[in-house]
Structures are given as C-alpha cells and as structure tokens.
Amino acid sequence: MISAALSAALAGWLDHQKALKGAAENTLKAYQTDVLGFLAFMSGHHGEAQGLGPIRTLTVSDMRAWMAHERGRGVAARSLARSLSAVKTFYGWLADREGFDPSAVLSARAPKFQKKLPRPLAPDAARAMIDTVEVQAREPWIAARDTAVVTLLYGCGLRISEALSLTGRDVPLPASLRIRGKGGKERLVPVLPAARAAVDAYLRACPYPPAADAPIFKGTRGGPLYPRAIQSVMAQARMQLGLPATATPHAMRHSFATHLLNAGGDLRAIQELLGHASLSTTQAYTAVDTARLMEVYDQAHPRA
C-alpha cells in the first residue's frame, strides 16, 4: 500500500513525463508498473504503507534488497535495469520537489546485461521477403495489403505501428509523409515510388473503401489490421526463405537504416528519418562495422 500523497506524487510525475518529456502512453504504463512494483515491495519490506515520509529515508540496503527480490523472482537483468531507471527518475523528481537527498537510490547500479544488436537483412533478403509475402495470401487484396505494409517498413523505415496507423487522410501518399512517432514526435519521411505504388495497388484491390479518419489497412472482416497479422505472414515467409527468427517486421526498419548508411547516407539524416532522439540509437540500428563508422566520421571531420 502507498499513501494518497505518494499516489498523487506518482500521478504528478507521470503527467510531467507526458507533458514535458513527450513520453508515449505505453511508456507511461511501463513507468507506472515499474514504480508501483518498487513501492509495493518497500511497503512489505518495511511492514508499513509507503508515504512521503518513509520514502525519503530509503537506504542502499533497501535498494539491494529490492533488486535481489526482483532477480529472485526471475526478472531478467535487462528488465530490472529498465525498472531501476524508472525508479531513479521518479525518485530524483520527487527529491527535487520535496527537498531530500536521493543519493541512496540514485547510486544503485543497474545489473549488467548483453545488449542485443539489431540484425538487419541483406538487401537481396529484404527484397525476397517482400516478394514472398506477396504470394502468402489466398486473396489478392490481402496479398496486396501485406506487400504494401512490408514495403513501407523497408522503403520508408516506418515502425509497424506507424504504417498501420495511416488513415484515409494520408492517401494517395504524398512525396513526403508526416509521421507521428514515439512520444508524439513528428518527422517527415520521403515516400519512394515503389512504396506509393504498393499502397495504391492495395487500395485499388481492397474491398473496403478508405475513410478519412480510419486506418487504410484492413483486416479480413474490414476492421483495423493488427501487427500480429503482419508478424505472422513474415514468419511464414522467413521459413520459406530459410531466414532466421530475427527477420521480423522491425528488422525491415533496421534494414532500411543499414542499407541507407552503407550506400553513403549521413547518420544525422538517417536519425531524422527514423525519428530517433539520440544518434547512438541510430548507430545501434544500423549495425555497421567500426571501419564504416570511422569512414563516415573521417568524411565529416577530415584531419588537417
């Protein structure tokens, strides 16, 4: 149990993350779950409801106990690191508001874990994926639909949620598409002729006319298309092609970035196309070798 005052503080912090930091709804839900889990543990650990008073006096020992508890119940190191990050951010914000020393919590070290690097497809494999997806469906309009979605992922670097959120107002696709990504951040994405043609072909074949405020990509019964359908058709295609399980919809986005960089694209420009807040995130997505990164760096900063 946590006190009403602490509940209000948590709500205020979440509002702050949404209003000033632009956090997405799914991110806010994850933050809330992580912090509430932490506070619930502290209530049981201390045998009393957590309020603004007790929360001010947490110790390094308390943090170690919580982290040991989380690992003991099977929480992976990556997930625990994420939870700890949320707890630290909330605690630091609360300390600023309430005027106490947050050092005991902020000094807690996240568990080490092996970062998973994205695995893009080779250019020929990406093209083969699009071609194979096209022949998976029994109905021609569904085949056109799946092809259009996967082409948008690879040709424009869209997240699957971004592709599936396109509405009737977005078609016919313009030369540059305004995409609202994570945290409500907007970006302009050039639309390749192949992507525009694929979407046009789908719209001509689709038995459900597009509505201005409704998603253009439809399920078999006319409702909105969900990511699981595209994940499934790509899973079938990768089995036929002998590709690894990492050949997912998101891998097409990775491939877009990697192939663009390998063709001489600028990291900053690719960062903008992907909608990343950090350049380091773009570097991880592209999965290029150190030699290529140094080549790009040397071009941008030539030695005297």
Rank of each mutant, 00 (worst) to 15 (best):
E139D: 06
L117N: 02
P140W: 01
V149H: 11
Q136F: 10
I160Y: 06
V135L: 01
L158S: 12
R138N: 05
A128Y: 02
Q114T: 11
C156N: 07
C156I: 00
P111H: 04
W141Y: 10
V150T: 15
L152F: 02
R119W: 07
Q136H: 08
A144L: 09
A125V: 01
Q136T: 02
P118R: 03
C156A: 15
Q114V: 13
A143N: 12
I160Q: 07
W141D: 01
E139S: 04
R138I: 01
A125H: 08
P111S: 04
T147Y: 08
E134L: 09
Q114K: 14
A143L: 08
Q114A: 11
I160W: 01
A148M: 14
Y154C: 12
T132F: 10
T147H: 12
R119D: 08
R145F: 10
Q136L: 01
V135C: 04
P140N: 08
L121P: 06
P120S: 11
M129A: 00
A143G: 15
C156K: 03
V133P: 08
I130S: 02
D146C: 05
T132W: 11
G155A: 11
P118V: 01
R119I: 07
I142A: 14
Q114C: 08
V133Y: 03
P120L: 05
T147L: 13
T132C: 12
G157C: 00
P120D: 09
D146E: 10
C156T: 06
R127E: 14
V149Q: 14
A143Q: 14
A128M: 05
A110C: 07
W141V: 08
A126I: 02
D124T: 11
T147R: 15
T151R: 15
V150M: 14
A137P: 13
K112R: 15
K116H: 13
K116G: 14
E139Q: 04
V149D: 13
A137L: 02
A110G: 15
P140I: 03
V135Q: 09
K115A: 12
Q114I: 05
R145H: 14
K115L: 08
V149R: 14
K112G: 14
L121D: 06
T132I: 07
C156D: 02
T151I: 02
P140C: 07
T147Q: 13
W141C: 09
A125L: 00
A128C: 03
E134P: 07
R119N: 05
A128N: 07
A137Q: 06
V150E: 09
A148T: 12
P123R: 09
V135S: 11
L153C: 05
D131H: 08
P111A: 06
V135W: 02
T132K: 03
A148F: 15
A126L: 07
K116P: 10
L153T: 09
K115G: 12
K116A: 10
E134C: 06
L121F: 12
P120I: 03
L121H: 14
A110T: 15
D124R: 01
C156V: 00
P118C: 03
L158W: 04
P123I: 03
R145G: 13
P120G: 14
I160T: 11
A125F: 00
P140F: 02
L117Q: 00
P111I: 01
R145D: 14
T132A: 03
